[in-house]
Design a protein around this nucleic acid. Structure first.
Lengths: 122, 122
DNA sequence: CAGTATCCAGGAAGATACTG
DNA sequence: CAGTATCTTCCTGGATACTG
């Protein structure tokens, strides 16, 4: 009996992926997405809260990443005021919440690495 | 009693990170690394095996990513021949193996996404 | 406050051809 | 077989200034 090796690809949002890991990384990969999502696990946050929490991100990048996360259905954006100063809150969707175990798993592994070879600054 | 918010950064490999998630993503993020690693969980693989398994990667990219993973201590590269045709095998290091639960967690979540919104091609 | 606009640099990754 | 070499494109992300 021979092992079958059909090379099947998966189409998601009009892009092709070779496995489910690729799809996951398309949604949470990159330098900032998973960091933003981690901070949203314990509740909704305003734009500036996230900006301060993720101290090394730029406003532009934060904005772009939030838009992408919203587009991918992982977070929602709610505006609470009509005139400046604006109040906007970001929150995980139910779909986004299914990511929580994955994200904490990533963060915990990162902590192991940091404890072993990282150096705390300041 | 006030909550402290010391903004401490972590230095890893001469780069600064704002949290452990960032460090983890530095090591397994990007388009291909986690995919390569996933295939190495169930045992060592030759270059061409990986190349065929990850059908949409290019030789150049596979080569670069393998080098980076080796540099980061996640995999080892072993050469078994002196003359062409070469036989080279890649294998997870003990450190790389600690990633297994994280990677399967990512893959499983990706599968949920794929089942819900993905479309299988061919 | 919550972003945009603009400009720019570097790296990731693809295509293709070649080699020890 | 297991890569390199070369060239190119695209995207991510940074810096800074400005706005409803």
């Amino acid at each position: 009996m021979e092992i079958e090796h059909k090379k099947r690809l998966i189409k998601y949002n009009d892009k092709l992926f070779s496995c489910t890991t690729s799809i996951a990384m398309e949604l949470i990969g990159g330098k900032w997405k998973s960091v933003i999502l981690i901070y949203l696990i314990d509740g909704k946050k305003r734009y500036n809260e996230l900006y301060k929490l993720i101290s090394t991100i730029t406003e532009r990048t934060l904005s772009l990443q939030l838009k992408q996360l919203e587009k991918d259905g992982l977070i929602t954006r709610k505006v609470y005021t009509k005139k400046p100063p604006l109040k906007v809150e970001y929150e995980l969707t139910p779909f986004g919440k299914t990511l929580a175990p994955v994200l904490t798993s990533i963060a915990n592994w990162g902590k192991i690495v940091a404890d072993k070879k990282g150096e705390i600054i300041e």
